[in-house]
Design a protein around this nucleic acid. Structure first.
Lengths: 263, 263
DNA sequence: ACCATAAGGGAACTGAGTGCCGCATGGAAG
DNA sequence: CTTCCATGCGGCACTCAGTTCCCTTATGGT
């Protein structure tokens, strides 16, 4: 999570696809005013008449632009609901590409998921409005699946590189990526359902820790540098009475007595 | 997996959605000839001109039926590529609903995934043709996502019921469902990529065992009915030499010697 | 013979998405 | 200042997916 805080120069400028025409002077931070106007008009009409009840002509009519311009900025009507999706994917892939080979791959993809979370949390109002929309419009739900799929593919591709040496590296990469995305989405959705009031980051951290504990190579809840020296394993016959099991566990954890410590 | 073999009366008759009109006499096993003709014509044209290069008029022209009839059987053009999807989802939900509370939930959803696999493996030729199609047509890839999403939701909903007592039950359900689907799809896709020649079931079993080992409540590789009487736990100091660890493991498994058996 | 039901066929319509062309702006070169 | 080119925008027309409405036909029961 430390990797996510205050990364000054890590922002991908603007070379993303589906960005539409770059307007005016070839500077760095220009404002696609027409694009924002289209998004604003679209969400206003979607709130009034619903997604299916709104035509592209309605949107461009309210925004005061030509119909052809809409499809210059958004390849499809559904894309106006996820305006900066391409930039987010580009940011995530850049973040993963900047990963070193030393750190834990699972940690890295969890941090990448936190990156996506931050993009949602930065605009709570917009995220909640979009969530209510996608929840009840089947076409938008389907579109959201391909949005999420892009993130999952980015995570899985990164993990496949990192797990290239493992025997089941590709399988593990796909499974871990799916688990991370599922955990992230679980926490994100419950936050969106609450209207954006709860503490997202804590819930997402807990959810990601859940899969990290199951799939990371650093098994404990600790980071590699704080990992304890000992690994504890307990053997017990199932028919043994509970108090005997407990006593043996305690003894084994002490490292003395009749436990199974080999050292 | 025993639950998957030979379930004579478990087949969901025909009340699925998107099934189109039920034809002719009200018997049990009638054949929607027109539906099959549409699928056949569609795949033939898709192979020749591609999905985007084929219009619905082309399909109905080759099948010799009216254009309106196509949309009676398939709500959208993409649905002709997944003709029995609704029946598969209905089968899976029925299979999950028939689950007892005794067996391992993870085992159950893994078996449900194997059920889907069997539907693919029953028609290898069709599955491979569809795979090659969906691989290169973005619109079909997106549609496949919503197909897979239905399966994942079915698994997750079942797990949510089974994990209702757990503190993080809903999170665990979502993560396990995603992991199972990812593992299943990983093995399925590699089989489809091979043209349907490899042994699917073995690969899928291995992939599902991968997530079962991580998330099932019965940690070993054993089924509940063949579970051994003993539970083995091993304690080892990390700095111990490997041979000492191995020797202690062997001793512990023997139940004799200086191991940690409490009985 | 009559009607009821259900399936197929077909014309016409809406709306998304695309191709093409013309217009305007704005900066650079003559 | 004019010419030229590049770029963004608007508009028209077109294709095609999907829907609505209505008609025809077959079958089966009374």
């Amino acid at each position: 999570m430390e990797a996510l805080s205050h990364r000054p120069g890590c922002y991908v400028p603007r070379m993303s696809a589906s960005q539409g025409p770059r307007s005016g002077a070839g500077g760095t931070a220009d404002k696609p005013a027409m694009r924002d106007a289209l998004v604003e008009a679209a969400f206003q009409l979607f709130a009034e008449r619903g997604f299916d009840g709104t035509t592209v002509d309605d949107i461009v009519g309210l925004a005061g632009v030509g119909r052809r311009s809409f499809f210059r900025y958004f390849p499809a009507k559904e894309d106006v609901v996820f305006p900066d999706h391409e930039r987010c994917v580009a940011d995530m892939t850049a973040f993963l590409r900047a990963s070193g080979d030393a750190d834990d791959p699972v940690e890295r993809v969890c941090d990448a998921a936190r990156l996506v979370l931050r993009m949602y949390a930065d605009n709570p109002g917009f995220s909640v409005r979009r969530y209510r929309l996608t929840k009840q419009v089947p076409g938008l739900r389907a579109h959201e699946l391909s949005v999420v799929w892009r993130y999952e593919r980015a995570l899985a591709d990164h993990l496949r590189q990192r797990y290239a040496a493992r025997p089941d590296g590709r399988l593990r990469a796909d499974v871990v990526a799916a688990a991370v995305v599922a955990a992230h989405n679980h926490a994100l959705r419950s936050w969106l359902r609450s209207g954006g009031r709860d503490d997202v980051t804590a819930d997402v951290d807990a959810a990601l820790e859940y899969v990290r504990a199951a799939w990371s190579d650093t098994p404990g809840g600790e980071r590699p540098d704080t990992e304890p020296e000992d690994v504890v394993v307990i053997v017990s016959r199932r028919s043994a009475p509970l108090w005997k099991v407990v006593r043996s566990v305690e003894t084994a954890l002490d490292g003395t007595g009749p436990g199974a410590s080999t050292d």
